[in-house]
């Protein structure tokens, strides 16, 4: 059902509400950094869904609005440090565009912490985890995004909490005998 969330309805926080955050990570640096974080068994909350984009320069502002409309409470854009970009100037253009777009979204009433941009290189696995953790905490503090969103928002399966929340390897699925 398409859920019409008006401002008041979203204001109260449902009890087991978990922030939904999308991270657009640049393939060459941050995605590798995230991969490194996984390699080193670093735990970071699963609220962040990582989307790989070729370069932070490829970050189209429309993705951010679509994400917010489709139900995310926060958007994180990560790219290489200026100077490290595989495409040399990708993150310079992105820096300008994202600065302007961030101010425009805040001008339109979006809380500043909901849309963040970070430069995270391929080696900074720790920085990736800390960034993700801080973004999740900040967005959790802000509560659900109370923009009117008439596009049906995604209801992804509830995030498993408790300690096995972080070992995200699904156990072997044993196919029970198919009844006749």
């Amino acid at each position: 059902m398409s859920v019409v969330e008006t401002n008041e309805a979203a204001a109260q926080v449902p009890e087991n509400w978990e922030p939904k955050i999308i991270a657009f990570c640049c393939h060459w640096c941050t995605y590798t950094g995230a991969d490194l974080a996984g390699l080193n068994r670093m735990n970071y909350p699963a609220n962040v869904r990582v989307l790989r984009i070729p370069c932070s320069g490829r970050m189209n502002p429309q993705y951010v609005i679509e994400a917010l409309n489709k139900g995310c409470d926060g958007v994180l854009v990560c790219g290489c440090h200026p100077g490290d970009c595989h495409y040399v100037t990708g993150n310079y253009f992105a820096r300008r565009r994202m600065m302007i777009f961030k101010r425009l979204l805040e001008y339109e009433g979006l809380e500043p912490d909901r849309f963040q941009v970070r430069w995270i290189s391929g080696a900074e696995a720790g920085k990736f985890r800390d960034t993700v953790m801080s973004v999740v905490e900040q967005v959790r503090a802000l509560g659900p995004l109370n923009l009117t969103r008439e596009i049906p928002y995604f209801e992804l399966p509830a995030v498993p909490d408790g300690e096995e929340a972080f070992d995200a390897v699904p156990e072997e699925v044993v196919p029970e005998e198919v009844s006749a």
């Binding site: 059902m1 398409s2 596009i151 049906p152 928002y153 995604f154 209801e155």
Partner: peptide
């Protein structure tokens, strides 16, 4: 139409 995974309007 507006889709949401399996159901929509």
């Amino acid at each position: 139409q507006d889709m949401r995974r399996k159901d929509g309007v």
